[in-house]
């Protein structure tokens, strides 16, 4: 159990290599519980690579090697005995493009609880699906058509379905990799409001190219550049009075 602001995720000296290329040069970053942390920076700066270190998504990329350590609630997630499937249930992920399974709305959300054996009865599973859809702010819109296919929903609804799917297995941490980049401003606002609500129950780390989204949704912001964290601090400080001139140049749209 963690408390707001207390370190949920501790990373020390995280280096990532894609073959010979080093993408991250030793990241030391502590992420607080029950708050939203934004990772910002230009394309190729390593922010998504770092995000994927938190649930070992880099394991599936051929030639990718991770050094250093990442602890979640004091557990070394790169330890030999770590069960990666269990880890990914603890650390859910939402991607740039909504990627619902080609299944019904119900089955999309029920998928995780089923494979993790979380629901002993049909009633329990129904309850989990409803709770997750409610938390994701989608229940009202879909409760009378749970059997419809997930891909028939609008983009914003699909993304909320993916969020419902991620939280159905009751994770501690939710990672979001540019979750709104394919959505219109209204759907984006709905997701942002949802992030605000979700942070009371989950620790959220979000990669975004929208500076304004980072400033709207997060309490902490890390600015990545060329595989390093240039500056990390309270979002209000980063956007009003950054300490580093590179950060200032990036957030204010100057040639760095």
């Amino acid at each position: 159990m963690s408390y707001e602001g207390e370190n949920k995720i501790q990373s020390t000296g995280v280096q990532v290599y894609y073959g010979e290329t080093r993408a991250l040069h030793g990241i030391d970053l502590n992420i607080g519980a029950n708050e939203v942390t934004s990772l910002i920076g230009p394309s190729g700066c390593g922010k998504s690579t770092f995000l994927r270190c938190i649930n070992r998504m880099n394991d599936v990329i051929e030639g990718c090697r991770v050094e250093g350590s990442v602890f979640i609630d004091g557990d070394d997630i790169y330890a030999d005995h770590m069960d990666v499937v269990e880890l990914r249930a603890r650390v859910g992920m939402v991607f740039q493009k909504p990627n619902p399974f080609p299944k019904s709305i119900y089955d999309n959300v029920a998928y995780g609880p089923r494979i993790h054996g979380l629901a002993p009865t049909k009633e329990a599973l129904d309850h989990m699906v409803e709770t997750s859809l409610r938390r994701a702010g989608l229940w009202q819109e879909v409760h009378d058509r749970l059997g419809d296919t997930g891909s028939g929903l609008s983009g914003g609804q699909q993304q909320r379905l993916c969020i419902a799917r991620a939280i159905a297995v009751n994770p501690d941490v939710v990672l979001m990799d540019e979750p709104c980049s394919a959505l219109d401003p209204i759907a984006t606002a709905v997701i942002e409001e949802l992030i605000e609500e979700l942070k009371s129950e989950y620790t959220i780390v979000i990669v975004t190219h929208s500076m304004q989204q980072a400033s709207r949704v997060s309490q902490k912001t890390a600015y990545f550049h060329l595989g390093n964290v240039v500056e990390f601090g309270d979002t209000s400080q980063i956007f009003s009075n950054p300490k580093n001139t590179q950060t200032e140049a990036y957030i204010s749209g100057r040639i760095g």
Binding site: T245, E248, A249, S252, G253, R254, I255, G256
Partner: peptide, 11 residues
């Protein structure tokens, strides 16, 4: 800030 904005009309 020494350098200008990428969007020069902002300057």
């Amino acid at each position: 800030m020494a350098s200008g904005h990428i969007v020069a009309s902002f300057d």
